[in-house]
Design a protein around this nucleic acid. Structure first.
Length: 335
DNA sequence: CGCTTTTGACCAGCGC
DNA sequence: GCGCTGGTCAAAAGCG
């Protein structure tokens, strides 16, 4: 039913998108330059696969370049839907990590998740003295009741709620679950057609936060992890909360965004953690998207990132990597 | 004990 | 209508 049919970042000219893409951290230049940033364009094809710094390098860090919200309608036509295709690997690409960002746009679908139904205990209400048949009947009735309740709940909800916009990240990684600063609880796992890898479903553990996350491996390139976010966090990232009062290392910019801060609001409100050194503009695409790129880059590139001992030491001293990377990556780096 | 993960069952939507 | 697939639920099990 739900295939990768919807892409939000659709553009006639991908470069025009990045003309307004702010450099969020010039300290990461050496890091992200090894990424190919693939953006899918018209006709379900990859329009470009460009070195990340080629895309970012044109930026004037001091200039106030923000997303122009008026262009977003052009980028995200309501009726059109697109497929996510993995970035095409070339021989030269093989040794490099590849990161693709795309977003789902699914305005027409109905959100069919029911509100959490009251769970009824069936067995505990069964009287021991009853005959087994009677017990069976009671259990059956209760089950039917529960089913009807769930069905009703689903119908009610589906009439009101629409599915949130979604955004998918394709990241070349050995680790399935990429840290993003939020806490997630797994609520389902499904085998996927034509894929030997299961798809995992996660929900944000924060109360009243409906953000969902889907993690699966690309069926034709198992080295790529596809992480799909749905919804918008109603709270700041725990990671960012931890970082908010930290002294800022001189290695990193103290001001990440140009002044004035971006004000454009992207229709897809991103679920990602904000950049650790940025002010929390949760509704801003550039903040969230760019922040996630940095983070994904750091996680996936942890080993190489710290290949220079001095850099690694600085980072470790600042307590930066421990907070930002998964523990496994960090452990490997400092062994 | 509380939280998370596992996993079988259920439901909706779609195509035939 | 039926079968298939994706998405979710919820009880049970696992874990710290």
């Amino acid at each position: 039913m739900e295939s990768y049919r919807d892409i939000a970042i659709k553009m006639e000219d991908p470069m025009s998108y990045f003309d307004n893409f702010p450099v969020i951290s010039n300290s990461f230049t050496g890091l992200v330059s090894d990424y190919n940033f693939a953006v899918e364009g018209k006709n379900n094809s990859i329009n470009s696969s460009l070195g990340f710094m080629e895309l970012l390098g044109v930026q004037d860090f001091s200039s106030a370049s923000v997303f122009d919200a008026t262009n977003l309608d052009k980028l995200l036509p309501k009726e059109e839907k697109y497929h996510i295709e993995p970035a095409v690997s070339t021989a030269a690409d093989e040794s490099q990590n590849k990161l693709t960002v795309a977003a789902d746009h699914e305005s027409s679908n109905i959100f069919n998740t029911p509100s959490t139904p009251n769970s009824s205990s069936i067995s505990s209400e069964t009287n021991e003295g009853h005959a087994q048949d009677a017990e069976g009947e009671v259990a059956e009735k209760e089950q039917t009741k529960t089913k009807q309740h769930r069905l009703k709940a689903k119908k009610t909800v589906s009439q009101k709620k629409k599915r949130e916009p979604r955004i998918a990240f394709m990241t070349k990684s050995e680790v399935d679950f990429l840290e993003d600063g939020y806490r997630w609880r797994k609520y389902g796992q499904k085998t996927v057609k034509n894929s030997s890898f299961p798809r995992n479903y996660y929900r944000c553990t924060s109360a009243s936060c409906n953000v969902k996350k889907r993690v699966e491996r690309c069926f034709n390139d198992p080295s790529i992890v596809v992480t799909t976010y749905e919804g918008k966090h109603t709270h700041p990232s725990p990671m960012n909360m931890n970082m908010i009062n930290m002294p800022r290392p001189t290695l990193f910019p103290t001001r990440v965004f140009p002044s004035p801060a971006p004000t454009a609001t992207f229709p897809l409100q991103m679920p990602f953690p904000i950049n650790q050194f940025a002010q929390p503009h949760f509704n801003d695409l550039t903040t969230s998207l760019a922040s996630n790129l940095d983070h994904a880059a750091l996680v996936a590139h942890g080993r190489r990132f710290c290949s220079t001992p001095s850099a690694a030491e600085i980072m470790r001293d600042q307590g930066f990597l421990q907070d930002l990377m998964s523990s496994r990556v960090v452990e490997e780096d400092y062994r």
